[in-house]
């Protein structure tokens, strides 16, 4: 009986995780190294990867800063009422509950070219939807809870006593944050950042809706894979997918390391 369960677990694990990765790798190299290199060196691939990296960097920076700030406010702020905190706290989880496609759709409905707000931005010379800003907003929306959910429990656990001690010793809020709070939460932030990067790298639904998947303009790595598959350009699709998968695996290893460090301090 036990053997059966072990065997079944291994089989499911293999079918779901190992086989697809192997299949992608085989697909990427079915025309040899040349096919892989060709797929990767196409100008549209390079542009799509550039877009993905750009979005990941911007989103990660914004989410790290505001995620940490929101966590601090939700846990520490005395000027926020308990009910408001509870409300904000549940709103943070909204992106988890809502499908990314619907998240993207909300942005289109709110900021699309036909809406009042969208028209306003358009007049000012800034396109939001079907352009980079919209894609950043969509990715921000999808990844926002990740850092908050990592940092908040740690802040709650360490309590405010150390910070209060620092303030009675004369330290300003800024000094207290960097010298007392940050050392306690830094590995949780790193963990949250890794999750954010991984999620932003692989985001498809929300970005597809807001970007319009315009070649050389708003196409990201994931939407390019989608288009290559549609066009039966399977070698290129597999090559890009393999690069993305390799990136994710690296991040996962990084995450394990961050987790072990978090346990230390």
């Amino acid at each position: 009986m036990r053997r059966l369960w072990i065997g079944l677990t291994v089989a499911v694990f293999g079918l779901l995780l190992i086989v697809p990765v192997v299949r992608i790798a085989m697909g990427a190299f079915n025309e040899g190294w040349g096919g892989f290199a060709n797929g990767m060196s196409r100008p549209e691939t390079l542009h799509a990867l550039y877009m993905t990296v750009l979005i990941v960097i911007i989103v990660t920076i914004i989410n790290t800063i505001f995620g940490v700030m929101l966590s601090l406010y939700l846990v520490r702020a005395t000027w926020l009422g308990r009910r408001i905190k509870q409300l904000l706290n549940s709103i943070v989880d909204l992106p988890f509950a809502v499908s990314p496609v619907i998240g993207g759709l909300m942005i289109v409905l709110l900021l699309g070219p036909e809406t009042a707000l969208g028209a306003l931005f358009n007049k000012a010379g800034v396109d939001i939807v079907y352009a980079l800003p919209g894609m950043i907003i969509a990715t921000l929306f999808v990844t926002f809870p990740l850092i908050v959910r990592e940092v908040m429990p740690v802040l709650q656990e360490i309590g405010s006593a150390q910070e209060e001690a620092a303030s009675t010793l004369g330290a300003s809020a800024w000094t207290t944050f960097w010298r007392v709070t940050w050392p306690s939460i830094q590995w949780s932030v790193v963990y949250g950042v890794v999750l954010t990067v991984a999620r932003a790298l692989g985001e498809f639904g929300a970005v597809l809706v807001v970007s319009g998947n315009i070649l050389f303009k708003t196409q990201t790595a994931t939407t390019l894979v989608y288009q290559d598959v549609e066009n039966f350009n399977l070698t290129a699709a597999n090559s890009i997918a393999l690069v993305l998968a390799a990136g994710s695996v690296t991040l996962l290893l990084l995450m394990e390391w961050a987790k072990s460090r978090r346990g230390v301090h």
Binding site: A161, A171, P183
Partner: peptide, 20 residues
């Protein structure tokens, strides 16, 4: 006056030492 400017020392119940 904020705690920083009161010229006091405070010993907390669980000491609140900076653990790092």
């Amino acid at each position: 006056l904020p705690p920083q400017e009161r010229g006091i020392g405070f010993v907390f119940q669980n000491y609140a030492l900076f653990k790092h």
